[in-house]
Write a protein that binds this DNA or RNA. Structure first.
Lengths: 293, 293
DNA sequence: ATTTTATGATACTTAATAGCTATCAATAAT
DNA sequence: ATTATTGATAGCTATTAAGTATCATAAAAT
């Protein structure tokens, strides 16, 4: 039995006329007669009573007709849902966003483990500022983002990863600061190197707040749009900066001094963000395993 | 899409191995690959992720697999029920039993009307004694019987058609009986013509009861097994008989006298009997219309 | 009663396609 | 680096669905 048989049966059951039914199927009458006969033979059931002038459904045929309707409806629904799942869950790709200011030593490790579980997954990493990531996540251009709070979006789920205090970064000079006051005096007139305001407005505000607490207004001479440039410019002696503490280990080999701001109660929250409606199975695995590490 | 595609899909989903799946389907691997590709193209959905070494279901594929299971189960159930209905309801024939002693002038009329509603029905009429009909009905050899109560069978449904009083049948002689006493005197020594006891035991008992009430014991000289023979023998002057009144009109043209036994409170009940489990649509129509006439 | 028309079945031919063989490219194990 | 295994591809064969022509017969028309 093939779906063709069921389809042809339905046509004859509706028309109760082989020639008309055949026309409605855009085939000629003899093959239709044959397919119906085949179906009846396979079932061992007479579905139609017919002579040259009249075609009627048997009782069994009547039942089978309604039954075939149900099956077709179910098949159609199944196809639709399958297509929906395909669109929602089976990109075969996991698009991950991250900000340059977050150092993630175990990301590579997790991507490796991901390929064990999803051997066909393609992963794409995008370094993007928080605000761009939020847009991209909302539009489905990213599956998950590693970024800094706050995330103001009711379309996204947010999970805290950790809280990151700040540190002052200055060129390595063997200098020692006994207290916050000495440090503030040292840097207050130095040129500051930082992200530009459009790139990371919230982050920019934090910097200004920290300097305010240290008793001065920063002179932001160089604005850049990624953390690597900031660090390089500081190392080259063009100025100082204030960055999240977690970056310290990433640049431990550079000629820089990092001074933690222990007494300044300002920090940033690093989070995972993703669309709740995103069915991507690799995403689910990623969230679960990133968190538990 | 054909059922073949779904069947092949299921095989690959179970084996997660094209060559093994092909072997399990007793086909070679290339056509299997092609059918799966066709299915994926029609759905617009990737069902498997695969390379030369590994085959896994996508999320959409996982859903589709369970969904196809359901559809197959439903199709199988539908086929079974259709076959059952075929066996129970679609004989395309209506087998009617009747006793020779019941005259049914509108039976022919009803059979004609039946053919309007069921143009393909084949009707078979069987003249059989009540006890044989009961057996045949129970065994499904008859669909419906027109017979005389009592019907002692818990497998059969019984519907009363009418109550039939008795009459005495004698050769036409212009004789007149002013009362039951005269009649009894006239027939008590005559030879009786009647059904044999094995053929219609209950009916036989009724005859004896009537004679008892008339004050004599019948001398049953001729035993026969159909009502036509009884009537013919009476007409030929071989004896007398006692028969149901309803037969009077059937033999009105013969040289016979019919004397109603108005004062004898013995009659027989004519009934329709049929199996309740019989789904024959023509039977249902027959019962309904026979009754309402 | 006879003729005409319409219809499903049948016999045979053509066209589409499922399935087969041979082979390739790529992966993973040795 | 080599070998074995596997799904994909190309081209051919065999099966079968679909088409054409025709028949037999039931119902309608005459």
């Amino acid at each position: 039995m093939e779906i063709r048989h069921l389809l042809y049966f339905k046509a004859v059951a509706e028309h109760l006329h082989f020639r008309n039914a055949a026309a409605s199927l855009f085939i000629s009458q003899p093959p239709l007669s044959r397919q119906i006969r085949e179906l009846e033979e396979e079932l061992g059931v007479q579905l139609f009573l017919r002579n040259n002038k009249r075609v009627v459904l048997t009782e069994a045929g009547k039942y089978f007709a309604t039954s075939v309707d149900t099956i077709f409806a179910q098949l159609e629904e199944s196809k639709n849902i399958t297509r929906q799942i395909h669109l929602a869950a089976d990109s075969g790709e996991l698009k991950i966003g991250y900000t340059s200011s977050v150092y993630q030593p175990h990301l590579a490790e997790i991507l490796k483990a991901l390929r064990q579980v999803f051997p066909f997954i393609k992963t794409s990493l995008y370094e993007r500022p928080t605000i761009k990531q939020i847009e991209a996540l909302e539009q489905g251009k990213l599956d998950v983002g590693i970024l800094r709070a706050p995330v103001h979006s009711d379309k996204l789920e947010v999970q805290t990863l950790f809280f990151d205090p700040f540190m002052v970064v200055v060129p390595s000079a063997g200098k020692k600061f006994n207290n916050i006051g000495e440090l503030a005096d040292f840097i207050k007139d130095k040129p500051f190197i930082f992200f530009n305001k459009e790139y990371a407005p919230h982050y920019y505000d934090k910097l200004v707040e920290i300097c305010h607490r240290l008793g001065f207004k920063p002179d932001i001479t160089h604005e850049v749009n990624n953390v690597h440039s900031i660090v390089q410019l500081v190392e080259a002696g063009l100025g100082v900066s204030i960055l999240p503490l977690s970056l310290k280990q990433q640049y431990a080999n550079l000629q820089l001094s990092f001074i933690e701001l222990k007494d300044i109660p300002v920090n940033t929250e690093v989070v995972l963000a993703y669309k709740k409606s995103n069915l991507n199975a690799a995403l689910k695995w990623f969230i679960k395993n990133y968190n538990s590490k």
